[in-house]
């Protein structure tokens, strides 16, 4: 009986959301009518929060309403598309620019030397693993000390043979950041003068920050995982 009642209330609330309040007002049983009204209020509140979440996303999607001004990301993406065609992977450049890895070294030099952009400071290189069996990614956060603007660039690579061109000749700190990403994820940076592990020992096995990493059992005879048996 209550299942039919729930279905009936759901139908009536649907009609009311579309604007037809008569269905609710015509319910004779007072308990059912009040239940239907409470369900209607809850449905309206949920749809309002969903709309509110959608609205700021839309607002950030159109960063400016005036067609003459462009955001920094769009300007950079257009400049890159003009000079190095075929290197931008995705059209959505609101939060980051997705490149596909070829010409990355020349793009990096262009980003650093172009007088409008002047990204002279590489803030951080982060490695990223999407999950077991999926792709790996390298993310660069660049910043300019003269124009005070910042940008994020992402490059995806294949999990089984990850290779990305190295930018250590452009920003000197790329040397150590790339060695750390190699140590943690196994991504090889081509053109790096010394691609060795920097944090883990040289003879460590595995790429620790990958999602499918398993700790090795012993290292030079010392047990690695915590042993919990044998406590008094």
């Amino acid at each position: 009986m209550s299942e039919d009642q729930d279905k009936y209330i759901a139908e009536v609330v649907e009609k009311a959301l579309r604007g037809d309040m008569d269905a609710i007002n015509n319910i004779e049983d007072r308990v059912t009518r009040s239940k239907a009204k409470a369900a209607l209020i809850k449905a309206k509140r949920l749809s309002k929060t969903a709309a509110a979440e959608a609205a700021p996303a839309e607002e950030t999607a159109q960063t400016d309403t005036t067609p003459t001004e462009k955001s920094l990301n769009q300007k950079v993406a257009e400049a890159l598309a003009k000079k190095f065609s075929g290197s931008i992977d995705s059209e959505d450049v609101n939060e980051y620019i997705q490149l596909n890895g070829k010409n990355w070294f020349e793009i990096a030099q262009y980003l650093k030397d172009n007088p409008d952009l002047l990204f002279d400071s590489l803030q951080c290189i982060t490695g990223f693993d999407f999950g077991e069996g999926e792709a790996l990614e390298v993310r660069y956060n660049l910043h300019s000390m003269t124009h005070y603007h910042a940008i994020e660039i992402r490059i995806k690579t294949d999990r089984n043979d990850p290779k990305v061109p190295s930018v250590e000749q452009v920003w000197r700190i790329g040397d150590w950041f790339e060695r750390e990403t190699y140590d943690m994820y196994g991504i090889v940076f081509e053109g790096h003068h010394n691609m060795t592990r920097i944090l883990c020992p040289e003879d460590w096995e595995g790429w620790p920050l990958r999602k499918d990493y398993e700790t090795q059992e012993t290292y030079h005879g010392i047990i690695v995982p915590k042993v919990k048996e044998g406590w008094e």
Binding site: D120, S121, L122, Q123, W171, R172, I173
Partner: peptide, 11 residues
Amino acid sequence: VMPPEVAISYG
């Protein structure tokens, strides 16, 4: 002595 260009390039 650390010149400012070296400092910025090394982050």
